[in-house]
């Protein structure tokens, strides 16, 4: 189990990158991260049955995100706590959820289930971006639009 971004989501970001003359994403992880954080903020993901079935783009968390990977995982846990209506004082349930998402034995320290959930948030996040008006043609325009859409969720 690895990180996956659907073909449609890749195309969405690639087209922005291709048309922009003033900047670009550094990696597929950038695109994946932007998509996933929108889904997480919206507390909305596609169902695990609809997880993108494309080839994974990478198995690991790249250097650009290594320091803050636990923040991404914490955001994922917070979203799932709310989605599953787990009361915040339920020690056992929260601990079980955390341990189902994290995995000390995986190099990323994210379990297969955790990766699957993140992939599902990324897919929903891309769909939110895609349906929120015309696609920006410049990278700086994308960053501004992204911020607006994120804060609306």
């Amino acid at each position: 189990m690895s990180f996956r971004l659907s073909d449609n989501a890749r195309k969405y970001f690639d087209e922005i990158e291709n048309s922009s003359s003033t900047g670009q994403f550094n990696s597929m992880w950038d695109k994946y991260y932007f998509a996933a954080m929108i889904g997480i903020k919206a507390r909305d993901r596609v169902s695990t049955d609809d997880e993108p079935s494309v080839e994974p783009f990478v198995d690991s968390v790249i250097e650009d995100f290594r320091d803050q990977k636990f923040e991404i995982y914490a955001a994922l846990i917070s979203a799932e706590v709310e989605r599953q209506y787990i009361p915040k004082d339920e020690e056992d349930e929260i601990r079980d959820l955390m341990l189902s998402i994290l995995d000390s034995n995986d190099p990323t320290q994210l379990s297969d289930h955790g990766k699957q959930l993140l992939n599902c948030y990324a897919e929903r996040g891309y769909k939110i971006l895609q349906s929120s008006g015309p696609k920006p043609t410049e990278f700086d325009q994308f960053l501004r639009r992204y911020h607006q859409i994120l804060e609306k969720q």
């Binding site: 950038d30 923040e71 994120l150």
Partner: peptide
């Protein structure tokens, strides 16, 4: 790229 910087809600 850092979630805590990206949005106050995170």
């Amino acid at each position: 790229r850092v979630p805590s910087k990206l949005s106050p809600s995170f």
